[in-house]
Simulated assay, not measured.
Amino acid sequence: MSEKPEKKPRKEITKRKVLNAAKELFIQQGVESVNMHQIALTAKVGQASLYRQYNKLSDICADIVREECQVLIDDTQYYLSNTNENLSSLDKLYQVIIKFVSYLEFRVDWICEVTRASTNYRPIQSPLYQWMRKICTELLLEAVEKGEIIDVDVPFTVEAILGTLNNVDEQLLHQGYTIKRILEGIENIYFNGLRKSTN
């Protein structure tokens, strides 16, 4: 006799309903137009059940960002673990940034807004940017140790790069920039200027 599949705990089911409903509303209306009451109605859960899971909207946003960006994180970690050892740390970092920008491109109409809202709009402090800050810092420090780049203030440079990446939606949707233009600009400003001259 086959075993019955294990039932998910009610708390987990409620959380999934809330996240699915919130994501649907964010895509349709934008984060700023959505409130906790709407999410509870769309998810078909009681207000008390919702608040047992999440105290505020930014907490929901943070969980959505974590879930949505896990594919990017996994892909990046696989790339860094399996990349050519002869590739410079700076080149690895640029490839990570290409992955980051390309990933956002297809979600740019909503994921950037959700990312900012996940920290009550404190700039570049969401789970996604905390992770990206760690990757950028590690690879730039590695580049310094290997003598690949000029002497540079690594923390400041990382924050400058993240500040640019934080506005990808503005650049794509409102400035009319292409992904190619954004990536070339990042390469020219932050990468070509850092490389040590081979002369």
Results as ranks from 00 to 15, higher is better:
R107G: 03
E3T: 14
E85L: 04
I98W: 11
V152W: 03
V45P: 01
S102D: 15
N167E: 11
S88Q: 08
E68I: 09
H37W: 10
K7I: 14
N86R: 03
T83P: 04
A117N: 04
T115V: 04
V154L: 07
R66P: 02
K8I: 14
V168S: 12
N167V: 03
Q171S: 14
T137P: 01
C136T: 08
S118V: 07
I39K: 06
K23Q: 05
L139C: 03
R16S: 12
V108N: 12
C112L: 13
C69F: 01
S197V: 01
I98N: 11
E113T: 09
N188S: 13
L141N: 11
E32C: 09
E145M: 08
K4M: 11
L72A: 03
H37V: 10
E113N: 13
L173G: 05
S81H: 10
S118Y: 01
S118C: 08
Q125C: 11
T157H: 13
E142G: 01
K11I: 15
Y129N: 08
P155H: 02
L25T: 04
I149G: 03
V152S: 00
P127V: 02
V144G: 02
I179C: 14
K4S: 11
K180E: 15
L25Y: 03
A40W: 07
P5M: 04
L90H: 01
G193L: 06
G193Q: 14
Y190C: 06
I111D: 00
T198S: 13
L173M: 15
V34E: 07
I189W: 08
G176R: 05
T178C: 06
I150Y: 00
I13E: 12
N35Y: 06
N55T: 14
R66K: 15
W110M: 01
I179F: 03
N35P: 07
K23H: 01
R107W: 00
V101T: 10
K44H: 13
